[in-house]
């Protein structure tokens, strides 16, 4: 079993780094090539969401990402924002998406969740076990 851990300051510029690392580890873990685009997108969405929450709450704490390949490829993205903000898988209907009243931030959040839910079959969003925050846990099968 291999584990790679990454924590980064909650700045947009580092989300790309997390994506690149996440895909590199996925490839080494044996995730199918044709799933790697989805892995890249999903890790990016989870990290983007975490960065947005830290900035919204003015939290300087790092965003934590852990990748492990024990049995399957598991990625955990952990934020430290208050729970009420974190959960809420809002799926937006097409007619809502184009509504004038919907802010760009709200739209981006809804679309981000739609992408996570659409691209990750095994997805969990849950409170962290210790302290404040939410964990987005994503699992992909690996070839053995």
């Amino acid at each position: 079993m291999a584990t790679v851990k990454l924590s980064f300051s909650p700045a947009p510029v580092h989300v790309r780094t997390a994506r690149l690392v996440g895909v590199a580890v996925a490839r080494r873990a044996g995730v199918r090539e044709d799933l790697l685009d989805e892995v890249r997108l999903a890790i990016g969405e989870a990290c983007t969401r975490a960065v947005a929450l830290h900035r919204q709450y003015g939290l300087p704490d790092p965003v934590y990402v852990e990748m492990s390949d024990s049995g399957a490829y598991t990625v955990r993205v952990v934020d430290r924002a208050p729970i009420e903000a974190g959960i809420g898988l809002a799926a937006l209907a097409p007619d809502e998406l184009a509504q004038e009243s919907l802010s760009e931030d709200a739209l981006t959040t809804g679309v981000g969740f739609a992408l996570l839910a659409g691209f990750v079959e095994d997805l969990q969003v849950r409170p962290v076990e210790e302290g404040v925050g939410t964990e987005v846990r994503m699992v992909w099968p690996v070839r053995r």
């Binding site: 994506r19 997108l41 990016g44 969405e45 983007t48 760009e104 739209l107 981006t108 981000g112 992408l115």
Partner: peptide, 8 residues
Amino acid sequence: FLDSTGLG
């Protein structure tokens, strides 16, 4: 690469 922020 295009994510939710770009779509927004």
